[in-house]
Computed example of a mutant assay.
Amino acid sequence: MKYLQNIMLSKRVRDPFVHFIFACAGIFFTTIVYAQSDALEDSSQMSDNAEHSLLMDISKTESKLIAVGERGHIVYQNAGSNEWLQAQVPVRVTLTSTFFIDDLHGWAVGHDGVVLSTTDGGEQWQKLLDGIAVNKMMINHGEKLLESTLKAIEVAGDDELDELNEALENWQFFVDDAYAFSDEGASRPFLDVWFQNKNEGFVVGAFGLILRTVDAGKSWTPWTEKLNNFDGFHLNAIEQIGDDLYIAAEAGTLFRSIDKGQTWQSLESPYEGSFFGIVGHSDKTLIAFGLRGNAYISYDKGIDWEKINTSVESSLYGGHTINENQFVLVGAGGAILHIDNKGQVIKSHTSQYKLPISSVITETAINGKPSRLIISGIGGIQTINQVSKG
């Protein structure tokens, strides 16, 4: 995996923002690219080859497969059909993730702070949010936090002042950053999305972005102060495993919520590199994965971790729970790893063209058992007929 040059932001040098689309494209950024307003306003163009373009994520409902990717491409395949159709999408920015709560209701997120929704199973999409609105929201939120902290300092006792002054410094930094992002335009991407039901959900993204909605995305509330993430580490993935929610983030950062995101606990990390995702089965087994083939397994909801010997140096971008005994991880160079619930790699191979893979799901056969892997990434969607037994 190629490292990216440091991103300069608000006179701050951050760790490299290592995300799949940048790594795959081999693009080196020294500054955040300013958003092009027309990409937020123009619809994605129809293409005969959309299913073969860079597709970042793939989801499955009862009646469809839906994949999202570059230039606002969203493609879907109806159950029982081999044909991929292209959806109508109101933006042409790169889309990074999608999530469906049922057969009809879904959301997609992407670059330039875009959040989309569908109520017809992914055939037509509406824009709910973009980075311009996000920037205004974050400025307003930061200024309110500053004001409330200043008021608290005025009446605080001596034993509270140190903590409040530290909070004041953090929120001032937050506001300064928010104004800097606003000057640059709609530059921050969302990287993942999760919904509890048709109304309540979260979107997470770069530089610590996390927003919550309780009305299906019509309005959003910044959730920044709920996480101990004052460094603004990139929040790469949000996943429900069992009854709990987990966030995998930059610089070895992991969070868990036991109340569907109302509050969050920082987990002690087993390493300092970035996590790109986390998978698991009913809280019995968690696997967090990320840079240079690093993967770790936990049996106690992320309190303790054991390193998995993946025997690969390819960064791992996506994962999927096949069943309670087996998981699959995918990543750079077309890497595909099947891992059992003891943390052992039981099968390791690469996709046909050895191109980076960002997402993986399984197709279920008539007997109810997984029959094929469906992967997405550079080159679009591929199917792999053999799923390792477990």
Rank of each mutant, 00 (worst) to 15 (best):
S274M: 15
R372C: 06
D300Q: 13
I322C: 06
N325I: 10
G293H: 07
G302D: 06
G280M: 13
Y296S: 04
I322G: 05
L337D: 09
D300R: 11
K347D: 07
N309G: 08
G273C: 15
A335V: 02
T364K: 12
D300S: 15
S351M: 10
L373N: 07
F275D: 12
V360Y: 01
K307A: 03
G319N: 02
S314E: 04
S298Q: 13
N341K: 13
L316V: 07
S314Q: 07
G379Y: 09
G280Y: 05
I297L: 06
D300I: 14
D300M: 08
H349V: 05
E313S: 03
S274I: 13
A295N: 08
K369M: 06
R372V: 08
V279K: 01
G302N: 03
K369W: 12
V279M: 00
T350Q: 04
A295Y: 03
T321Y: 00
S348I: 05
I297N: 08
K347R: 09
I339K: 13
H281D: 14
L355E: 10
G331K: 03
S359G: 07
Q352A: 10
L355M: 12
T321F: 00
D283Q: 08
S311Y: 11
I278T: 04
I287V: 13
I297K: 08
A332P: 08
Q344D: 04
W305G: 06
T285K: 13
G277Q: 10
V345I: 02
I322P: 09
I336F: 01
I287R: 12
A365S: 01
E272C: 08
Q326F: 14
I357K: 01
G293L: 07
R372A: 04
N309E: 15
N325W: 15
T350E: 04
T321R: 01
D283P: 04
Q326T: 04
A335W: 03
N323T: 00
K354H: 05
I346Q: 09
V330R: 00
K342F: 12
G334T: 15
G368L: 06
S359L: 12
I381V: 05
K307H: 01
S358E: 07
H338V: 01
I308A: 05
K347Q: 12
A332S: 11
L291D: 13
V328H: 06
S371P: 14
I374R: 02
V345D: 04
D300T: 10
I308W: 05
S371D: 15
L329D: 02
A365Q: 03
E306P: 04
S348V: 12
V360P: 02
I378W: 12
K307W: 01
G334M: 14
G302E: 11
G319Y: 01
G377T: 03
V312Y: 13
